[in-house]
Design a protein around this nucleic acid. Structure first.
Lengths: 228, 228
DNA sequence: AAGTGTGAATGCTTTCACAGCT
DNA sequence: AGCTGTGAAAGCATTCACACTT
């Protein structure tokens, strides 16, 4: 049926941006690809192409029904349901994510906390009990939790990953600045803050150097978190 | 001199990963592109190609000198110096980043905190005073701070961005889940946690659907944070 | 008229494969 | 013999431009 043509990774990244723009456009009934382009920073052609990977959602001469397209994208991304999320590693960053509203509002609810530090295990964070990482299989049993956010230090990241996979986790959002290896059916996306700062450093540095030579064009590329 | 050929965005993203792998390989003197490939998940050809955008760092028949290549990449990325970083928006996430060691160890030092909440202004966070965002021009004056991390909510993100630019900030790492528009000489990278979770949701959902049809291949693409 | 859907063309990026250096 | 550096080829993604629909 659908899955014949290969869908570009970047299309998926943009889909959620389109969705956000649609939420902002809810006071109007219909949007054109041109209008969506302005709101999202993509091109109109890009948006139409991206959408046709999944179906025909527009009306020629009119545009896209805001409500309907939003509904469709939710379905495509699988965010038309609530996902429970396990958060592993209750350090500074982990604690900051627990109460993060941006996740809840799109249906990602952090429901289980894990750590390996005996001092933390048993304590509560934002109303949730911190469990022993070694009990994860037991705790997640029958909860249907498939997504984990990994906010542990680099060193134990791989070992913890193995435990997660054993517990049935299928997708990991990894904040640790190290590669974790997983079997091919497990999805990993990495958020590497230091890497992003290094890229900013590069671009600033390059600008300084190139100003001395000539005016180098700024590239306005788009890309996103990485699979390993 | 250098800036003739267009350098792929993804090359820059990988550069920092190579650098990390080199740090891990410091007990050995020389690495081949093949070995680096294994450590970073890229291909050997990719690594060689990426590096030749910037020079010839290897010795045919031998490989790359670990120490030397690490030094070169630091220079390319501009991380052979210390960057001072302004952190704007001292909420949960902001507070979590202040003490983050991963930044400090690569030379990114958060030196100035800003918020707009009168209750927070004047207080301290991890030993740093929280300043009024409206004083930013004054506070950053002559500090040479060019990078800002933006951890404010969506609504004020654009307005705060304008203030940052006025204060001379040249690069922004934006955690707010909204597009911020900036003049072309300003660099923005976005980290959008909810978007990443949505992508994980998509891949899990797709796997479930495609298992019913046929075994769809897993794509192992690589990409990273986005410019808008 | 206005705006979608889409093959074809263009433009990038990655991979291949091998000449050439050590 | 081993491994880099690199043109050429292959593989992807984006943009164009227009037929077609409302």
């Amino acid at each position: 049926m659908k899955g014949q043509v290969k869908i570009p990774t970047d299309t998926i990244k943009r889909l959620f941006r389109y969705y956000r723009a649609l939420l902002e456009s809810r006071e109007t009934k219909v949007v054109s690809s041109e209008e969506l382009a302005k709101l999202t920073g993509s091109s109109a052609a890009q948006i139409r192409k991206d959408l046709t990977y999944f179906g025909e959602f527009g009306t020629p001469g009119k545009g896209y029904n805001v409500e309907e397209l939003g509904h469709q994208i939710k379905g495509i991304l699988g965010i038309d349901r609530e996902w429970t999320v396990a958060l592993v590693g209750i350090g500074n960053l982990g604690r900051a994510l627990v109460p993060y509203q941006g996740l809840k509002s799109e249906g990602f609810r952090i429901t289980h906390l894990f750590d390996s530090d005996p001092k933390k295990i048993g304590m509560a964070c934002a109303g949730l009990k911190i469990n022993d990482i070694n009990d994860i299989k037991l705790v997640l049993h029958n909860t249907g939790t498939k997504i984990a956010i990994l906010t542990v230090p680099s060193d134990p990241a791989q070992q913890v990953t193995n435990i997660l996979i054993d517990a049935g986790i299928q997708a990991i959002l990894n904040f640790a600045p190290s590669r974790i290896s997983v079997p091919p059916e497990i999805r990993v996306l990495n958020i590497d803050i230091t890497n992003e700062l290094a890229r900013l450093s590069y671009y600033i540095t390059k600008n300084i150097n190139s100003l001395a030579e000539e005016t180098t064009e700024q590239d306005q590329g788009t890309s996103g978190g990485d699979y390993y």
